[in-house]
Design a protein around this nucleic acid. Structure first.
Lengths: 346, 346
DNA sequence: ATGAAAGCGCTAACAG
DNA sequence: CTGTTAGCGCTTTCAT
């Protein structure tokens, strides 16, 4: 059933070169022969073999995207956004999910190379080792790439400004009069959200109580938020607010708090990060930091498409760009802002 | 930077055929030459070109997956499940998202054909037209495919048993004494969930109040649940329970009910479908029907892998399988079962 | 405007 | 065990 260009040529009574010409629509072809060929194509139900084409053109029109998993709103929304931009340009995305394993990451990258992807989107929320062999190895191939992680060197980066986002969130809590703010679910290697947490304290001349900083080596989930909050409660270190690494962690914290008979936000205020769909529907509606995912996806796509359009030499010399998106604090009820009348604001 | 098999051959001082042999590891190669070649491969950082290989082998080791969108837990979880099974077998998945447009669907399928995918996973939750040209056209290519939609003919199907799931859910509500159960968010073309809803009534000799059946042409979201419930409330058609097409719809219904000053489940019971992560964390915890997504993904992968392993003729004659997975009613609080002591059960 | 022919990087007979 | 050779389906000079 799969027709080839040869059969189309025979059917139309021309050479394969001419068929190729109408397929690519660049060279001039006499209108009458073009029609004959188009008819033949339709009749035989012919589809070009992109793989064969790739070999010659030296481009596969394929983008590799590497992420921890898709069953997480942030990544799946990002995928949808990227899809919108790339598909229109004739690119196909293949995604590899690492499950946060560096070995899997290397395996995926290898398979991307074997498939000769034209570009890579790096969304591997993985703590990178000091001697980053994978990256060094990869950079040898000089494939256009854009990262969502500022820690990755040598590629364009598109990121939410999490230092700002976290600072805003914690600052909000602090100004609301909450003094003992716990930070739950950050990675073992402190990242910008933790820095923001500290920054907010610093700016107000407040000291961070290190006992309230709970990092985790696993991914930031409901369970982590739930367990760490429970643990905090058991330890009896007093705290009046929780800043969750993401919304899932915050949801977990709220449930743990409620089970302990504490009210949110009256007794303990909670703020999350990401603004997932559920944040607004949760009870209490979650105050959280919104990242402009669609814009991030758009910038990512644009940067990559730009690189792709350059010739290799221009690419080498082009400066690495670093696009940072402002985040937005979405104040709902879980932070307790509504509890205070404007007059009582500090 | 991209080395070819030729360069490896030269480096190792052998012919390309021998290199190919160690690459594919089938023919015997003398240990010493093998080592030389492996060294050369490492030294040159060589990666086989899968595209070139595909041309000869007539298989791309690529699976095309077509779904409405990934930003929906069901699809993204399914993707993760499929990824687990296919990746291990050397397959790569490319995803096409239709956004529920038939044209986009056709375009995606066309691109799948051009890329010569070995198999297709059909997750297009789209009402199919009577004269299904796309499908007819596609079937001409006889590509192994598995569908998640029983309405698609001529391929294997793997589905959750939604007739049973919906029947169970509504039966549960009915037995709890709720008599006016609304069904919200189903598609305009009644599907198995609506049938289950009716079936449950039928079996108990109860009549469905058609004013309580609210279908929608858009996708089943929180907004749909919210709006339709609000509308129902305004219309003053009395109802004591809501069966949502999925969890998102159910969440929306709960919020609309609460805003109207109604208590869930005391005044109105609510049951959802899918058991998304949030269902358990919601307030009240949502009673819902769980689909075994991972198992579905596994069966899907297995069926497809099986087809892929057959030779074309065996494939033609092999019977189409229809695997159906039992769903499970997860009773939490929103249905009000806990309100009743065992003695008061009907 | 069109055709002939040379590959793209690889695998698979077929010899030796 | 290894090399030679003929393609896979297409694009792209180079002629005509």
């Amino acid at each position: 059933m799969k027709a080839t260009i040869k059969e189309v040529a025979r059917e139309a009574g021309v050479s394969i070169a001419t068929v190729s010409r109408v397929l690519n629509g660049k060279d001039r072809v006499k209108a009458s022969t073009r029609e004959k060929i188009e008819e033949a194509i339709k009749k035989l139900n012919f589809q070009v073999d992109q793989n064969a084409r790739s070999m010659i053109k030296k481009e596969t029109r394929t983008i590799g995207m590497i992420v921890p998993e898709l069953s997480n709103e942030y990544w799946s929304h990002l995928f949808d956004a990227l899809q919108d931009h790339f598909w229109g340009n004739g690119y196909t995305i293949i995604v590899g999910t690492t499950g946060r394993s560096l070995e899997k990451e290397a395996a995926i990258l290898k398979s991307f190379l074997e498939r000769r992807v034209d570009g890579i989107v790096f969304g591997t929320a993985l703590p990178r080792p000091e001697r980053d062999e994978t990256m060094d190895w990869l950079s040898g191939y000089s494939i256009p790439a854009v990262s969502l992680d500022p820690k990755v060197k040598g590629m364009h980066c598109v990121v939410g400004d999490h230092l700002q986002g976290a600072t805003d969130a914690v600052d909000h809590l602090l100004r609301l009069g909450r003094r003992d703010v716990a930070f739950i679910g950050g990675p073992t290697l402190p990242d910008n959200r933790e820095l923001g947490y500290r920054n907010a304290h610093l700016r107000l001349g407040l000291q961070v109580n290190e006992a309230l900083v709970r990092r985790t080596s696993s991914s930031a989930t409901f369970q982590v938020g739930y367990k760490e909050t429970k643990r905090l409660l058991e330890e009896k270190t007093p705290f009046t607010a929780v800043f969750g690494y993401n919304d899932a962690v915050a949801f977990g914290a709220v449930r743990a708090l409620e089970e302990a008979g504490l009210r949110v936000p009256q007794d303990v205020a909670v703020v999350g990060y990401d603004d997932v769909q559920m944040a607004a529907m949760f009870k209490p509606p979650l105050t959280t930091v919104r990242q402009p995912v669609r814009e991030i996806g758009e910038a990512l796509a644009q940067l990559l498409l730009e690189s792709l359009a350059m010739d290799p030499e221009a690419r080498r010399t082009a400066p690495r760009k670093n696009v940072s998106f402002k985040t937005e604090l979405i104040v709902r009820e879980s932070c307790g802002a509504a509890l205070m009348t404007p007059a009582t604001w500090p």
